[in-house]
Simulated scan of single mutants.
Amino acid sequence: MQNTILALDLGTTTGWALMTRDGSITSGTESFKPHRFEGGGMRFLRFKRWLTEIKQTSDGIDAVYFEEVRRHLGVDAAHAYGGFMAQLTAWCEHHQIPYQGVPVGTIKKHATGKGNASKGEMIAAAKARGHLPADDNEADALALLHYALRLQEV
């Protein structure tokens, strides 16, 4: 029996990939765009609620991997990423779920052989593995999941 692993590409549009104990993989994206009349912290509360829903529907999570971004193109993106990462790590600590950040270049190199692969190349790599990602966020999460699975084998 496999471990249940959740891989996340954190952001306003979060890409996710989940492998459950039976070895099946599901993936998608979830939007945490701020709603018109909600406070700035509500997107993070919705993110935390979403994590709990995934945990409940998958009968628990054994490990979480997330894309570790070290450089952002804008201040807003950096703030959003920091908020999502803080919520994720606190949530994992609360539920005693091990978590690990993986640098972007490491994920890209594992998926494509190039540490600076483009969004299109990441999508193509996911399709080559038999997945049909809706966008680069989902493709990145799938690549991270496959990287995490390789780590589990070692």
Score class of each variant (00 low, 15 high):
A124K: 13
H79L: 11
A17T: 09
P34D: 11
I25Y: 08
R36I: 14
P103E: 11
V69R: 06
E67H: 15
K109H: 14
G39F: 07
T13L: 14
V75Y: 02
G83R: 13
F37Q: 11
L18A: 09
R70I: 13
R46W: 02
D76I: 14
A148P: 03
G41C: 01
K48T: 10
N116P: 00
Q56W: 02
F66Y: 15
L10S: 04
Y65I: 15
M122R: 06
A80P: 01
A111P: 10
E53V: 06
H79G: 06
R36F: 01
A90F: 09
K55G: 01
H95R: 04
A148Q: 05
R71G: 05
Q87Y: 00
F32D: 03
Y81H: 13
H95W: 03
G130T: 02
E38K: 10
A128M: 01
G40P: 06
T4Q: 00
A90C: 09
T112V: 14
S118W: 08
I5P: 00
I123E: 06
T14F: 11
R129K: 10
S27L: 01
L142P: 05
G120N: 12
G120Q: 14
Q56K: 10
E53I: 02
E121W: 07
D22G: 12
A141W: 03
E121M: 13
L45K: 12
A124R: 11
W91I: 07
A111V: 11
G101K: 05
R46S: 07
H79W: 01
Y81L: 14
A134E: 09
L88K: 08
G83C: 13
Q100G: 07
Y147M: 00
T57D: 15
T14A: 15
Y65W: 13
T89V: 14
Q87N: 04
E138Y: 08
D62Q: 10
E67T: 13
S58F: 03
G113H: 08
R46V: 12
T13A: 15
R70K: 13
H72N: 00
A134G: 07
M122H: 14
A7P: 02
E38F: 02
F47V: 02
L6V: 01
L132V: 04
A80Y: 02
Q87I: 10
L18C: 12
K33Y: 12
M42W: 02
L6P: 03
D140K: 09
Q56R: 15
D62W: 07
W91Q: 01
T20R: 13
W50Y: 08
K119R: 15
G113M: 14
Y81S: 05
I25Q: 06
S118V: 03
A77R: 05
A17Y: 08
V104S: 03
A86D: 03
G115N: 06
D22I: 09
E138A: 14
G28A: 00
D9N: 09
F66A: 07
L144N: 01
K127F: 05
M42V: 12
Q100R: 08
K33N: 08
E93R: 07
S24Y: 07
L144C: 05
R49V: 13
D135Y: 15
T57Q: 15
F44E: 00
L73I: 03
L132P: 00
G15T: 02
P34E: 00
A148H: 07
R43Q: 08
N116R: 10
A78W: 01
T26G: 12
Y147D: 00
L18P: 02
H35P: 04
R49C: 06
G115W: 11
Q87H: 05
G11F: 07
W50L: 08
L51I: 12
W50T: 05
N137W: 09
L51G: 01
